[in-house]
Design a protein around this nucleic acid. Structure first.
Lengths: 233, 233
DNA sequence: GTAAATTTGTGTTGTATAACACTTTTTCGG
DNA sequence: CCGAAAAAGTGTTATACAACACAAATTTAC
């Protein structure tokens, strides 16, 4: 548990769209109902088929939302960075979770009971519009992902995943190294391929001087070409 | 163009969740801004990369929402029946359309300017919650589809598509025949496979006495087995 | 600090499904 | 009703990728 002061500091410094539309009283309502949780690397935050109870707010660390599929296969659906909100979809849909969420690395999260979130929505139209906007963007993303994952070839899918990571977690000061270090297995689960093929295709990209790999550090050295490979399929 | 009276009749007899939460004045606002359009079979309602301007309301007929992917491949994302609303996601996401919509068969649709829809949302929290609910359900569906289409085998994907059609458009009075007649190509585009494979696998199912096929009429005779095939992958 | 476990890497084989090339049947426009 | 076009159906070939089986390197645990 973090001290409340730390929490308020983290939140109030954030530029999250949601936070921006809240009144002082509403912010108060959230901080009063905020429960801080810390998660270890790979610890599960919630799992498929569970009842959705909280909106989760990622304060620090990285989180993956994924779905267990056929056999032992896993598909990573979305990635979260501070400060983003997730875990609310199933509640709004009046369903159990259809996916799971886990910490990629040690992370700090806040949990707000969905009931409180619904009250906030009903009390502030801007909050409602925020969720409509977020859900709409996610839906567009998922629809696009359907086509990318089913129609692109392995190289296109991996290139796309690398660009997504750059987009989502940014680059280090050298302007090239991905600010996330994930296992080949996670990379495979993100791009719908086997771990072997993620390793092989990554080696391919190194050979073609598109990236430089040092363990889990991935440096993008030819982004235009990666983008081309991703686009073509 | 239909006469207004017909329109009001169609709408007021509908049990759509959205219609249910509207006040009389709000219903009036919609009918005043409703523009009726008729579409021929396969006619495009809107296309990818266009600016989203209207919420579309399907009054009669059937509509497919699809995305043009790599090469000439097409992925059907969602199917609509009367009375359902669509075409609003991109507007809320502040994006251009990422998918297209076309009439499966001769259809009548109403178009409500999205500006009017946004006013309705801002004026009635129940309307806002309706869209949050709809978007949330769609998002869960798309996330599930990602895994189904990427991980299930061809038989599983086709079985799933057939069950989806039964679910979505219902069965005829015999309790077995799908209330939709679609081309093998559309069936293939729905289940992420080539037309040839859709034809072949369909023939397979006929051989195994899971379905009876007469042209485009498909009769489901062993639903439990289809469900099993769909689930296994 | 060492053994066990996990992750990474590589070669080989198998197979699901796309691609292609046709023929046959059905649908559609004039 | 006829010819053209589209859709349905079938066989063959090609290939992208999974599956498997290891070896090597790295990380983790005690």
């Amino acid at each position: 548990m973090l001290k409340k002061s730390t929490l308020e500091h983290v939140i109030s410094n954030d530029l999250s769209e949601l936070w921006g539309v809240l009144t002082h009283a509403e912010k108060r309502k959230i901080t009063d109902n905020f429960i801080i949780h810390t998660f270890k690397k790979n610890q599960i935050i919630y799992a498929e088929k569970e009842e959705p109870e909280y909106l989760w707010c990622l304060l620090s660390g990285k989180v993956k939302m994924y779905k267990n599929g056929i056999g032992d296969r896993v598909q990573i659906l979305r990635l979260y960075r501070p400060v983003q909100y997730f875990g609310y979809r199933a509640y709004f849909a009046n369903e159990l979770y259809v996916s799971s969420a886990a910490a990629f690395e040690p992370s700090v999260l806040g949990a707000v009971p969905m009931q409180v979130v619904e009250e906030l929505i009903r009390g502030n139209m801007d909050v409602a519009m925020y969720f409509i906007h977020e859900l709409s963007r996610n839906l567009g993303g998922s629809d696009t992902k359907i086509v990318n994952l089913t129609q692109k070839h392995i190289r296109g899918r991996l290139a796309e995943a690398l660009l997504l990571l750059a987009d989502n977690y940014g680059l280090e000061d050298d302007g090239a190294t991905l600010r996330i270090y994930m296992s080949r297995e996670d990379l495979a689960n993100l791009s719908n391929m086997t771990t072997s093929n993620a390793i092989r295709t990554l080696a391919c990209f190194v050979n073609e001087k598109l990236i430089i790999v040092d363990g889990r550090r991935i440096k993008i050295v030819n982004e235009p070409m990666l983008r081309k490979i991703s686009k073509f399929g």
